[in-house]
């Protein structure tokens, strides 16, 4: 590209200064301008490939909160068709809305968690994460006993757990009541819903990753490439704001499995936990498990000093 532009010019250059004729000079300039424009079109030709993957309907789609029920139905039908076309999977994408009178809260018993990572894997499968990277919304930090300083922790531990001098701190989206990620989003592509879940409209996110920079809990993930999930491994039970396969170039995050929890079920990471360290529930229900824990256990939150007010608690027996 660069060569086609640069080689002809020096050869024709010597004649330029002696050209006094205005029109001829204009023609030469026009020729080079055309050449440059042609070279530019050739240079950005890979964009045509990208444009093929974006339909006009997708390009024009409005923000989730502004879609009428009919528009939503159209969008969901389109997304289901795309899943069939691109992933070969028959999926059902629901539009699960918050249950009135519900505010979801999570708690983890650090006395029990042994860092086995089953939650990480369950999240990976449930949420149709990219298989190449073993992506997951959960990271488990192995911490030396006697400190809460994550600087001393490690997420890359392997082998037999638990190790005698360590405890294990699973971290995922804390569904903050004062979420910095929501504040910084320039296009309101992420927001907090009535039941406390911070969601992302994957079809509105522009991929600036400011939320990734703002989140103090490493809760957000960016789709650096198109996720790879074999058809037979796709979880077909999906929701628009939750675990549908995400497009490339947008940010995603833990939604407390809203496609399950808004239908009354427990999150996948909790069901997968073999140690029973995870507790989930509705904090507005005074008889709920989670309320009993907050009232009876020694509970703490991560990075309290940042004022993010997490809806995620850690406790010790």
């Amino acid at each position: 590209m660069a060569n086609t532009e640069s080689t002809p010019q020096p050869t024709s250059k010597p004649s330029l200064p002696v050209v006094q004729n205005f029109t001829r000079r204009a023609a030469v300039k026009g020729a080079f301008a055309t050449l440059g424009a042609g070279a530019f079109v050739a240079a950005v030709s890979p964009l045509r490939q990208a444009a093929k993957n974006t339909t006009a309907a997708e390009f024009m789609q409005q923000h989730y909160t502004e879609l009428s029920p009919e528009q939503k139905a159209d969008v969901i039908a389109r997304l289901e068709a795309e899943a069939k076309e691109q992933y070969g999977a028959d999926v059902q994408i629901a539009d699960d809305r918050p249950i009135p009178g519900t505010k979801f809260v999570y708690a983890i018993n650090l006395s029990v968690c042994n860092g086995n990572g089953k939650c990480v894997e369950a999240c990976h499968k449930e949420n149709n994460h990219d298989r190449d990277t073993n992506q997951s919304y959960i990271r488990v930090v192995e911490m030396p006993k006697g400190t809460m300083d994550m600087e001393k922790g490690s997420t890359t531990y392997t082998g037999t757990v638990p190790k005698d001098d360590k405890f294990y701190l699973p971290v995922q989206c804390q569904q903050c009541d004062e979420p910095p990620c929501v504040d910084v989003c320039p296009v309101k592509a992420t927001w907090k819903e009535e039941d406390g879940i911070v969601v992302v409209d994957y079809n509105w996110c522009i991929g600036c990753r400011y939320c990734e920079a703002a989140c103090p809990y490493h809760a957000r993930r960016f789709n650096w490439k198109k996720p790879v999930v074999p058809a037979e491994e796709i979880n077909p039970d999906q929701s628009y704001l939750s675990n549908r396969v995400r497009p490339v170039g947008v940010v995603e995050k833990c939604t407390y499995c809203l496609h399950r929890t808004r239908r009354g079920r427990l999150p996948a990471c909790l069901e997968a936990c073999p140690t029973g360290a995870r507790v989930f529930g509705n904090i507005l229900d005074k008889d709920s498990n989670i309320r009993w824990i907050l009232e009876n256990k020694r509970v703490y939150i991560l990075k309290e000093e940042l004022g993010t007010k997490p809806a995620f608690f850690y406790y010790f027996d």
């Binding site: 590209m1 660069a2 060569n3 532009e5 640069s6 440059g36 070279a39 530019f40 240079a43 950005v44 030709s45 890979p46 964009l47 490939q49 990208a50 991929g207 960016f222 789709n223 650096w224 490439k225 198109k226 490339v248 170039g249």
Partner: peptide, 20 residues
Amino acid sequence: TALFLVGANAWANQVAGGMI
């Protein structure tokens, strides 16, 4: 211009292939 075109091409590839 040549350098710009190299950059434009690289960017087009980035958009087409993702920021991987």
